[in-house]
């Protein structure tokens, strides 16, 4: 539970990512089960209209296939196993699933994965440099901006988005920027402190 050392997460993902690209590159050409000798699974995918999707996640290009109604959060959590992003309400009310899409915080439970096509996604895992915490994440540890920690990835990504827009936010900007993220443990006072501490450290 103390600080982790070892291989860099980013390099690790890079390795995995290359494999993913390789295995899916042939998919769009498929159209007929018999002719192409499709598996049951592939036939089902064809029937359900699965689409190829290409996006950047935490700096790494990902090409994969999704069912058209797949939510971005489910792609991240189930497909890419980036379970740092949480689902709390699953209907755009709590901010627990906040990620950064092309520089802006969004609720990933309110977006189709396909709508992220060609875009760039950053999740809580993407803030790390190897196993090293981002100063914003470190501020949440130092200021104890959490209790159970379940809303925390969403809080941190909302704060990240806020600091991208306002590197030196006023109190009001912090309250507005963080007001879309519910914390049932109500760690709010220390969440605010964490954001302020991060802003002054990153400056």
């Amino acid at each position: 539970m103390s600080k982790k050392k070892g291989i860099s997460r980013r390099n690790f993902i890079k390795g995995v990512g290359t494999g993913v690209v390789g295995s899916y590159v042939v998919v769009p050409a498929l159209n007929n089960k018999a002719a192409k000798n499709l598996s049951d699974n592939e036939e089902l995918q064809l029937k359900e209209g699965w689409q190829v999707l290409s996006l950047k996640v935490n700096g790494k290009k990902i090409i994969t296939k999704v069912k058209p109604n797949t939510l971005l959060v489910d792609l991240l959590r189930n497909e890419l196993q980036l379970t740092g992003t949480k689902v709390v309400c699953n209907q755009g009310e709590c901010g627990g699933c906040t990620i950064i899409l092309d520089g802006k915080p969004v609720y990933s439970c309110q977006m189709l994965a396909l709508d992220a096509n060609g875009k760039e996604v950053t999740t809580i895992e993407g803030l790390l440099l190897g196993e090293e915490l981002h100063p914003l994440q470190q501020a949440f540890v130092d200021e104890d901006g959490l209790q159970c920690g379940f809303c925390t990835p969403g809080q941190i990504m909302a704060a990240y988005g806020l600091l991208l827009k306002y590197p030196d936010p006023t109190d009001e900007q912090i309250l507005n920027g963080m007001s879309g993220n519910l914390c049932r443990c109500a760690a709010y006072p220390k969440i605010i402190k964490s954001v302020k501490a991060a802003a002054s450290r990153i400056k």
Binding site: T85, I124, L133, V141
Partner: peptide, 21 residues
């Protein structure tokens, strides 16, 4: 004292039951 499980919770590496695969 800062929480000793703070790293896991802010990094996204904490695997909650909801995250278990």
């Amino acid at each position: 004292v800062s929480r000793i499980d703070g790293y896991d919770k802010v990094s996204g590496s904490a695997v909650y039951t909801f995250d278990k695969i």
